[in-house]
Design a protein around this nucleic acid. Sequence first.
DNA 1: CGCCTATTTGATCTGATTCAAACAATGTGG
DNA 2: CCACATTGTTTGAATCAGATCAAATAGGCG
Lengths: 249, 249
Amino acid sequence: MVSSANPDLHPLVRKLESIFELTPEERRGIANLLVSIRDLQADQDVVRDGDRPAQCCIILEGFACRYKALEGGKRQIFSFHIPGDIPDVLSLHITVMDHALATITPCKMAFIHHEALRPFLNAFPRISDAFWRDTLIDAGVFREWMIGIGRRQAPVRIAHLLCELFVRLRAVGLTEGNTCELPITQAEFADALGLSTVHVNRSLMALRGTGTVEIRQGKLIVKDWARLQQAGEFDPTYLHLRPPAAKAA
Amino acid sequence: MVSSANPDLHPLVRKLESIFELTPEERRGIANLLVSIRDLQADQDVVRDGDRPAQCCIILEGFACRYKALEGGKRQIFSFHIPGDIPDVLSLHITVMDHALATITPCKMAFIHHEALRPFLNAFPRISDAFWRDTLIDAGVFREWMIGIGRRQAPVRIAHLLCELFVRLRAVGLTEGNTCELPITQAEFADALGLSTVHVNRSLMALRGTGTVEIRQGKLIVKDWARLQQAGEFDPTYLHLRPPAAKAA
DNA sequence: CGCCTATTTGATCTGATTCAAACAATGTGG
DNA sequence: CCACATTGTTTGAATCAGATCAAATAGGCG
């Protein structure tokens, strides 16, 4: 079980704190949430298109993504998810899933029934607001991806996505200096960015060639953040993170 | 002022009823909401990127869109909005706008201060849920557009968007038979779909050539719904509308 | 070692862009 | 009510970003 010893280390607490200020009681409340924990293999569907889930999941460890399979074997990935994320909160208010959620790597996930989550959110209305805020930020991420897919050139899109992932991982304490785990394949990037694998590869090599970033063995190495940010036309406003200063209280 | 005589005709009531079941008191509550009403010209920014709005707006008449301006004069339109929509509810929980909201046609809009909306939503928690549901559906629309921009060919994208707009307009009673007002220019479609104006034009002409749909003088005429739906690979699930049967109570 | 999955490379093809210009519709002021 | 301006649609030709097809290489792992 996730220990309630130190709420500040709970992935969901870290995630919510990255976008919302929590009181100590709220932090404890979250850490004490009764959940069942499961280990999932890589490339497993957690929820499928058309499902009517009765629970939500919280990613404790590992990477996941939301996607929809299309005719002709194509698919579109909508978002990548990292520890602390609750990728399917929407099932609280939308009964039928219109897309799927799958693991990318092996994951440890916490599951909590809607019937347990609802009273919890009633008891902690501010946490409910934090969840709503999170889903709104989620939508902002979709908008930003739309810009990329619709109007940015391939290398820019990729650089932008790498910036986003790095910043989000940093916000929940999952980076070390200028590196982080990033076990996403080029085929997955392609499905997320609306590109072919081949083109993702070439663009990624171009970024590597200029000494901007590098992905090796599932690790992202940011060699020149300023240049990466510029290459991706990246402005983190849309992630609506709390200023890091405020976090170090 | 919007009369409270018949709540059922209030655009916001119609909109929420299209996705959520309201009680008579809730309908009355909405219709009695104190708001200030303004008439806006076409192509006006209602809220700008970077603003910190203190109010939300409800579209009573006219068309609007959310967009973000990009370097090089490009822009991406994220969504089109019709009467009943509250395109900027998100400002309730996200202080700084990361995109803009503009009118497309002249609009009549109702404005309501956050400080008035918050107690209202506390008094009617189910309406608060309905709003949350609406923002989640909004995100679903973004996802569907991502698929279009990322993975569908131009004529399919356009057909899909026309299907979506027609279905949404019908859900709030703004269609007549197989036609509806649709005062959106080809340049606006292009900005929404990540295409050039020229290509939008050619694709639209192709659809017209097959007797599928036609846009003339700001009016959409669906000549063959089945074919349009097929051409757009359109499945309305993601709009999560209540079955029309349930509406006719 | 050998299998499977991921990355890399090369050559060719195409959907969509861009630029440029004509045309149609709508509106405006004299 | 017509001349003119403005905005939106249509057409054509040249070009390009990115797709597709095919095959080689490189890792990771039982």
